[in-house]
Computed example of a mutant assay.
Amino acid sequence: MMNARKRGLTEEAATTAIDQSCRLLRLPTIRAQFPELAAGAAREQMSYKGFLAELLMAECDDRARRRSERRIKAAAFPRDKSIRAFDFDANDSIDAPVIHTLATCEWVKKGEPLCLIGDSGTGKSHLLIALGTEAAMLGFRVRYTLATKLVNELVEAADEKQLTKTIARFGRVDLLCIDELGYMELDRRGAELLFQVLTEREEKNSVAIASNESFGAWTKTFTDPRLCAAIVDRLTFNGTIIQTGTQSYRLAHTKNKSKTAATTAD
Rank of each mutant, 00 (worst) to 15 (best):
V98F: 11
M137Y: 14
T145K: 01
D95L: 09
D87N: 09
K110I: 08
R66W: 14
L138A: 11
E134W: 00
S120N: 13
A168P: 05
A168Y: 08
L146R: 14
Y183D: 02
L150S: 03
K109S: 13
G121I: 00
H126G: 02
C105M: 13
L131D: 02
E200Q: 13
L193S: 04
C105N: 11
A147K: 03
L131E: 08
A75Q: 06
T148A: 13
G118D: 01
K124W: 01
T145Y: 01
G139I: 08
D159V: 11
K161L: 15
I129T: 10
E192H: 12
I99E: 04
R84E: 12
M137T: 14
L114T: 01
L193W: 02
V173K: 05
T148R: 08
P97C: 11
D89Q: 15
M137S: 11
L198E: 01
K73N: 08
F86C: 04
I99Q: 08
Y183E: 06
L176F: 05
H126E: 02
L175R: 01
A130P: 01
I178Q: 00
R172V: 09
G132N: 09
E112D: 11
E180L: 07
A64R: 11
G182D: 00
I99Y: 02
A64F: 06
Q196A: 09
F195E: 03
D174H: 09
A74D: 10
L194S: 01
A157K: 04
D95F: 12
C177P: 00
D187Y: 13
V142F: 00
P78S: 05
G132M: 08
G171H: 03
S68N: 12
C115R: 07
M137R: 13
A136E: 04
P78W: 05
E134K: 02
A168E: 13
A136T: 07
N152M: 15
D61R: 12
A85M: 09
T199C: 12
I94P: 01
R65T: 09
D187M: 10
E180H: 06
L176R: 03
V173N: 05
N152E: 13
I72Q: 08
A64N: 15
S68P: 03
L127V: 08
A76I: 12
A64G: 12
R63N: 03
D61C: 12
E156I: 13
A85F: 09
A135M: 07
N205R: 11
D174F: 07
A147C: 04
V108W: 01
R63E: 07
L146H: 10
E156H: 11
V155D: 03
F86T: 04
I167N: 06
R188H: 12
F88T: 08
F170M: 00
T101N: 15
L138V: 02
V155W: 05
G190V: 05
I129P: 07
L131K: 03
C177H: 03
P113I: 06
G132F: 06
A90M: 07
